[in-house]
């Protein structure tokens, strides 16, 4: 599991690559910590290279959203594959996030 944080057009973009499962979740959790600390900028979670996500990964996504929302920041999910979108759909997360 690799994560890269970039700044694009004043937005914070986090690129996920590989499998976001229970094993890689703690490490990813640390990686997304800057996203939670940021303020005044929209967050884009780029999932175009994300192969797999488990409930542990979904919890990380939810924690990002939960920290951004009170600040008025938007969290967008970008480039999501159909199979992962299906997982989002199963859990009702499609209703929580905005997709690009």
């Amino acid at each position: 599991m690799n994560t890269v944080l970039k700044e694009e057009n004043n937005d914070l973009v986090m690129y996920f690559e590989g499998r976001l499962d229970t094993a890689s979740a703690p490490e990813t959790e640390k990686a997304v910590a800057p996203l939670k600390e940021s303020s005044g900028r929209d967050i884009i979670l780029d999932c175009s290279k994300l192969d797999y996500i488990s409930s542990a990964g979904l919890r990380i996504f939810l924690s990002i959203l939960k920290s951004a929302k009170p600040k008025g920041d938007h969290v967008y999910i970008r480039g999501i594959s159909d199979s992962i979108r299906a997982v989002f759909a199963m859990t009702g997360f499609v209703n929580l996030f905005e997709f690009k």
Partner: peptide, 24 residues
């Protein structure tokens, strides 16, 4: 069962796993 219709603020972090199992 988790309630998938809740908003982000209302949703807890537990129960997702068993929910996914049942879905799949």
């Amino acid at each position: 069962e988790v309630d998938t219709s809740l908003s982000a603020e209302e949703r807890g972090i537990g129960g997702l796993g068993i929910h996914l199992i049942r879905q799949i």
